[in-house]
Structure formats: C-alpha cells, structure tokens
Amino acid sequence: MHHENPIVTFLGLQFNLANVLMITVASAIVFLLAVLSTRRLAMKPTGMQNFMEWIMDFVKNIINSTMDWKDGGRFHVLGITIIMYIFVANMLGLPFSVVVDGVLWWKSPTADPAVTLTLATLIVGLSHYYGVKLKGTAAYGKEFFKPFWFMFPIKIIEEFANTLTLGLRLYGNIYAGEILLTLLAGGLATGVGGHLAAILPTLAWQGFSVFVGAIQAFIFTMLTMVYLSHKVSSDH
C-alpha cells in the first residue's frame, strides 16, 4: 500500500506538500484549541479552562519529576506546546487518510521521519543551548568527560543516539499505526465479507492508536524534559 508523496522543490528545498499541509493543520488546531479555551479566563475555572489547566499541571508534574522547578520552569511553555502538538498530530491520521490520484494528502505529520527528527533535533539542540547558557561553557564541556575521560566518545554517540531514538520512536509508532490502518481499510476490505471482517480489527486498532498516540506524546515530552535536565541540572 505505497502512496506517492506530493513533493515540490522550492528555493532548492524539497517540500512534501502533504507534510506542509498537515503541519499547518495540526498547528492551527492546537492554536485554536488553546486560544478558544483560554478566551474567558476566570478565577473560578470552568469547562475548557479546567482542561487546559489540567494539561499545564500535567506538564508541570513531568518537569518536576525530572528537575528543579527553578531550572525547569522556563521549559513549561515548551512542554505544553510539545505535548499538545504531538498529540494532535498523532490523532490527525487516525480517523481517515485522504488519497488523491494515488497521492497521500491527509495523514499524521508525525508519521514522517523528517518531521519527528526535526522536533527531536530541536529538543537536543535546545538542551545544549540551555546547558551552555545556565551552567557556563566550562561546566558544560566538563560534562562530556564525566565520570571518566575515556567516556567522551560514548557521550558524543549518546547525543546522536538520543536524537535518533527520540525522533524515530515517535515516527515508528505512528507510521506503523497508519500502515496497519491503511491495510485494514484498503487491503482487507474487498467485497462485503471483507468489509464486515475489517470493521472489528479496524475499530480495535484505532482505539489502540489513540492510546499509542497519547502515550507517545507523553513519552516525547517526558524525554524532552529528561534530556534538558541532564544538561541543565548540576547534580549529575
């Protein structure tokens, strides 16, 4: 079940228009959701404000479980944005996918390794930036030779491994989920019997994918905070 991708080249950069579309859609949904639910702010929270405050507290707990709030408070906004964006992005590919003339347009943006690796690189890059900013260049550099100097190559490899695993874990989970959904919907559902047979596993897999999508959003945020705390906290 391989679909074509709508790729264009612009200013020497290759754009997958499906990704561009879905990134925009996911961002727009997150933005609208967040802005609409914080329009009428009140001391006594109601409705969506409660939900948003719950997300904020949830992320706050994640940060608190990995580092001091004094250090981690600055990553609160980043954490909330990441968890919401990735969750929404994961959910987008679940209800349906749109294929026009054999070209896949509607899918999860996180089902693309370029997108997830970008986010992962952003996180790891931020961790290095804040490591230098908060601890100073000398202390930051010393971390690479702890606990022993000959650990240096391993530490370097670790940084790349972190980036790769962070990005590819998300990509793999979501992409696999979508592939299976496509197979169930397209491959199995041939003829009346096939349709009937496909209903149950599709429902089951969609439910499971919602779970996986939520878990992956949580894991991504959690690991973001763990990587940031490794670089930022001084108790290592």
Binding site: F15, N19, D112
Partner: peptide
C-alpha cells in the same frame, strides 16, 4: 531525497 523543506517548515 531528504525533505529539507519539511524540516525548515516544521521548525
């Protein structure tokens, strides 16, 4: 190829 545009756009 690598979707460099996607990377920039996503970022």
């Amino acid at each position: 190829g690598i979707n460099t545009g996607d990377i920039v756009f996503q970022l």
